Simulated scan of single mutants.
Amino acid sequence: MALLPPLPAEEWDDKTRAAFIGMLARDRQNPEGAGTALSALAHHPDLTKAFLGFSVYLLYRSTLPPRLRELAILRVAHRRDCEYESQHHVPIAQEAGLTLDEIEAARHGEATDEFERTLLAAVDELEDKNRLSERTWTALGERLDKRQRMDFIFTVGGYGLMAMAFNTFGIGLAHDDEFGQER
């Protein structure tokens, strides 16, 4: 049962629609086009606008290479038991070059590439300890510069927050991604 179901279409007003401007294509700034997750967030337009700006950065403008971003997101989603994020990032991960076997392995903290294993272990370290050790920070620095490592930390935290919210609100699986795009 959803604690926070999608905002009904008749309750969408100009402020609600404005929360999506610049985040979604114009034809998606409505109850039907926004998708399940965003329609639930629409209950709080100010929060939605602020959070979407951050989320759009993490997904589209981050300095973290897409493949590594998706490995981190898949691991966070699995650890946070967020089926919504876990399923919605499969096609995004595939677009980033991951195979279905690699996606499944990443969920369990496994990878054939040594650096990718380090990155997945870093997700676990952040989830378990809320910080990275100097050793892990340095290990990530073998392939990632400081900005990329910062984006990594914010990706893990941002998607952890999103998983917490989606799980609490009861946002279930649908046929749209977190930005309302049909997949």
Results as ranks from 00 to 15, higher is better:
L3K: 12
P5D: 11
P6V: 08
P6E: 06
P6R: 07
P8C: 05
A9P: 07
A9D: 09
E10G: 03
K15T: 15
R17N: 01
R17W: 02
R17T: 15
A19V: 11
F20H: 00
G22A: 05
M23D: 00
R28C: 03
Q29P: 09
A37M: 14
S39N: 14
H43K: 07
D46Y: 03
L47E: 09
T48V: 11
K49I: 00
F51V: 07
G53I: 05
L58I: 11
L58S: 07
L59F: 02
P66V: 03
E70G: 09
L71H: 11
I73L: 08
L74E: 04
R75A: 06
A77D: 02
C82N: 12
C82K: 00
Y84F: 15
Y84P: 09
E85D: 08
H89F: 08
I92K: 09
Q94S: 06
T99D: 06
L100H: 06
D101Q: 08
D101I: 05
D101P: 01
I103R: 12
E104L: 11
A105H: 06
A105G: 01
H108D: 02
D113Y: 01
E116I: 00
L119K: 03
L119Y: 04
L120D: 04
A122I: 10
V123H: 07
D124Y: 02
L132A: 03
S133Y: 01
R135C: 00
T136M: 13
T136H: 01
W137I: 00
W137M: 07
A139T: 10
L140C: 12
R147G: 14
Q148T: 13
Q148N: 11
R149D: 10
M150W: 15
D151E: 14
D151T: 15
F152V: 12
V156Q: 15
G157I: 14
G158V: 11
G158L: 14
G160H: 11
L161N: 12
M162V: 13
N167R: 08
T168H: 03
I171W: 00
A174D: 15
D176K: 10
D177R: 05
D177M: 06
E178H: 06
R183S: 05
R183N: 11
